[in-house]
């Protein structure tokens, strides 16, 4: 099964160096969306929040499979 890498940028770039084996692109995207939800839900209250929170999913052959961007507008 292919290995996918889920790099996160939340003000600080946090690359995924080990990756995760997942059966296909579609499942990798679904898991990325679900993970975005829980990563955001369980951020520590004082965690630094950038203006854009993003996840980039990179699949086999370094192909970008999907990107997820969450915009946080403080007014």
């Amino acid at each position: 099964m292919p290995r996918y890498f889920f790099h996160v940028h939340d003000g600080i770039y946090s690359p995924d160096s080990s990756g995760t084996v997942i059966k296909d692109d579609e499942t990798a995207c679904q898991q990325a969306i679900q993970t975005t939800g829980t990563l955001l839900a369980y951020q520590k209250p004082n965690a630094p929040i950038g203006r854009v929170w993003g996840m980039i999913v990179v699949g086999p052959d370094e192909k970008v499979i999907c990107t997820i961007n969450v915009a946080i507008d403080r007014r």
């Binding site: 160096s17 080990s18 990756g19 995760t20 898991q31 990325a32 679900q34 993970t35 829980t38 990563l39």
Partner: peptide, 12 residues
């Protein structure tokens, strides 16, 4: 109760 991606990130 989390995705494997999340578990992996937290272990790292």
């Amino acid at each position: 109760g989390v995705t494997v991606i999340h578990a992996n990130r937290m272990l790292m």
